[in-house]
Design a protein around this nucleic acid. Structure first.
Lengths: 221, 221
DNA sequence: CTCGAAATGTAATCGATGATTACATAATGG
DNA sequence: CCATTATGTAATCATCGATTACATTTCGAG
């Protein structure tokens, strides 16, 4: 361990801006870069640590705490970004679904939901678990999620109004539907699928089959 | 930092065994105690750390590593114990279910499954997630879980043989059933239930309702 | 324009944790 | 009875989240 250096840094502050090499003292948008680094870390399956995110942003270990009061706040921001992407993909899928048939829309919703979860396991995990930051700490995340729930609710209510369902216990159907879809997505995440003996792409088709089975179960006739 | 002490400890080794106060150098069954401490830590919602388990066992921080090569191994042992209890409760519930009606047995299975998951959230999490230790690192855990899956499979196959099911795609039905039950249990764990506006005990009744809905959906007529 | 306040990054440091090593002590069996 | 082995202790390390004091840059009010 070298003796404490009080002020060793060679001060080369003048004539900076010109040379493109010298990294400016202030990072362009560190907050954004940190979120992206954390997202990438998660996607790589690594544990998301503030320090590693800082390392990837080429910044000191303490810098992130200027933008996030603690690790959980960073994770919450990561979750918000992931949720944004999740929701965007689901809404894109619904935009292509027939607007008249609520059960077909529900099917499209479920398939898009599971697909994204399968293809973005780490991000889905962060979104759905509430174990990486204080639950409800992000209003945006809570609101986004509530809207997705409301979306499902509306589709099923519409189906009921059109007399497409056998049962009228909407609350029960809604919860069952969510449990089925969430459960399927989670089983992948939690490694319950290798035992099924299904290849990657077969899993997505199985998801369609399972959702169809459920719809057939709740549909009239 | 004090200078290294080579052998400072006052050797008071004689005349020990008599006095009941002096904790013996060797712990009775540290392995067992560590697992119990870790189980309790998890149940309390705290993070399970090797050090804290050692602390509760009144033992040095390095001691646990005589029994577990690393933290994951301890967690795997904890998971094995939890899985044992989980399976025991499910089999107890099945022992009381009518042996003739496979769908009633499936219902009892599902309810017992969800009940245990709701009442032992932290333990269920450790069992089911495979995020606390290397997946498949415990042969016992894998085997136990596979047996539960096989159990469900048998019940549904039996129902099919008795002509109770509308569809003959057993694999699809099995996966849907597991997704539904696992999903319901997970939604609780992951905090998706407060939004349902259900009280603690209502959730368990809702689980029964959801399982009944599913059974009605796959049953003939 | 300038100067001082606010924003943002750095350096040093703390306490907790998982892990490893050298060493101390107890249990066991030949 | 003693030596081998099992088991616990002490000391130490690297990593991490977090905090604090300090340095640098930005930006707006006068």
């Amino acid at each position: 361990m070298p003796a404490r250096q009080t002020k060793p840094q060679t001060s080369k502050p003048r004539a900076r801006r010109q040379t493109s090499e010298a990294r400016p003292y202030h990072h362009g948008d560190l907050r954004r870069v940190l979120i992206d680094a954390a997202l990438q870390l998660a996607a790589e399956g690594a544990e998301v640590s503030v320090r590693e995110a800082a390392r990837r942003a080429a910044v000191s270990p303490g810098a992130p705490f200027r933008h996030f009061p603690n690790r959980d706040a960073l994770m919450a921001a990561v979750a918000e970004e992931a949720q944004r992407r999740f929701r965007a993909e689901i809404e894109a899928a619904l935009a292509e679904a027939p607007s008249a048939d609520p059960l077909a829309r529900f099917r499209a919703f479920g398939i898009a939901y599971v697909r994204w979860a399968i293809r973005n396991p780490a991000h889905f995990e962060i979104i759905s678990t509430g174990r990486y930051f204080a639950h409800g700490s992000s209003a945006e995340l809570t609101r986004d999620n509530a809207e997705l729930v409301a979306l499902t609710e509306r589709m099923l209510a519409e189906a009921a109004e059109q007399g497409l369902l056998r049962s009228t216990d909407l609350k029960r159907i809604l919860i069952a539907a969510r449990a089925l879809i969430y459960g399927f997505a989670r089983m992948n995440l939690d490694g319950h699928c290798p035992r099924w003996g299904l290849a990657e792409d077969e899993i997505e088709r199985m998801a369609e089959g399972v959702i169809d089975l459920f719809i057939a179960g709740i549909a009239k006739h």
